[in-house]
């Protein structure tokens, strides 16, 4: 007669260990097992968070060892929230976020819809489309910088080919009006494949019998698209928006390489601005307050969004 897994585990346990833990309750053993994880979580997540919140109320500077650290109450928060430059970076981030999400969802879904159709070379096209996302953002930023060069870059020449505009007459990353769009174009080029893959997973999860039933009921293709495809893909699409939204809220490397936050500070996103405050100006207390504000903003927005996502899933 074969023994149960629990019995086998008990037999395999050395006598001494069994004797030592014999007096501990199941709950105690459970704590014993999860305590290393909890300790790590506290050490590398919770403690830094609490420490950051504490520092945000001080004038601490990490590069001034030995300087007296003063408690300055809400001064850092007041300065951040009343600083028009910070609001400009928030605005730049919102513009970047909305622009990239709009185009990535639109193009990503369209590509997924096309790729989902059976045609010759389907796999090859899928591989080609996902290539940009496999590159390093820093590399992408650098080579698009060259592509955007008005005198030698390919981008302006392509625009010239279609519009006839002189390539030297404008500069994508040096012009206040064009630079925000320049970073949106590059991020869209790089990350649309990611949205496409998620949408593709959604499209392929739709059972064929739904379309067959709709066809039997004489529903038009357009009607099938709005009443079957979109509702079934929507949770996937929302998930893609969540991932891309979080990623782009903390966007740093690609934009730094491409525009450095310029011209002026027109493409200086919050993460770039925060890095400058924390690790170039070394205003640690101020930067901590800034990080807390961003954390609360992202956490709040993400919570609302996840609730909406769950509601969509429940439908």
């Amino acid at each position: 007669m074969s023994s149960t897994p629990m019995e086998r585990a008990a037999k395999a346990t050395p006598r001494l260990l069994a004797k030592r833990i014999s007096g501990i309750s199941d709950r105690g053993i459970a704590w014993l097992f999860v305590s290393p994880t909890i300790f790590l979580l506290l050490a590398i997540n919770i403690f830094p968070l609490i420490w950051t919140i504490y520092l945000s109320f001080t004038n601490y500077r990490a590069n001034r060892i030995g300087r007296e650290v003063k408690f300055i109450g809400l001064r850092n928060y007041e300065r951040i929230l009343s600083d028009p430059d910070i609001w400009q970076t928030m605005q730049a981030t919102a513009h970047f976020l909305l622009g990239t999400l709009f185009f990535q969802v639109l193009i990503g879904f369209s590509l997924a819809w096309l790729i989902n159709r059976k045609f010759k070379g389907n796999d090859l096209w899928t591989t080609i489309i996902v290539l940009p996302m496999m590159l390093s953002p820093a590399v992408v930023g650098n080579f698009w910088k060259f592509l955007y060069q008005p005198q030698t870059g390919l981008f302006n020449y392509v625009v010239t080919f279609f519009t006839g505009v002189d390539p030297s007459s404008y500069t994508m990353i040096g012009d206040v009006a064009l630079a925000p769009w320049a970073i949106i174009i590059v991020d869209t080029w790089m990350w649309t494949p990611f949205v496409m893959l998620i949408c593709l997973a959604g499209l392929r999860s739709i059972p064929d019998y739904l379309y067959e039933a709709a066809s039997v009921d004489r529903a038009s293709k357009w009607r099938q698209f709005w009443t079957i495809t979109i509702p079934m893909v929507l949770p996937f699409l929302m998930l893609a928006v969540l991932f891309r939204g979080i990623e782009n809220f903390k966007m740093f490397d690609l934009v730094v390489q491409l525009t450095g936050g310029g011209p002026g500070s027109i493409t200086e996103l919050t993460s770039i601005n925060l890095k400058r405050e924390a690790f170039e100006k070394w205003r640690t207390g101020y930067a901590s307050a800034y990080a807390v504000i961003l954390f609360v903003t992202v956490f709040g927005l993400a919570s609302i969004y996840v609730k909406a996502l769950n509601k969509v899933k429940e439908r």
Binding site: Q151, G260, G262
Partner: peptide, 13 residues
């Protein structure tokens, strides 16, 4: 003025 009138296009950085 020197930047606006005398530099190559794309020399913003």
């Amino acid at each position: 003025e020197l930047y606006d009138t005398s530099t190559p296009p794309g020399s913003s950085d």
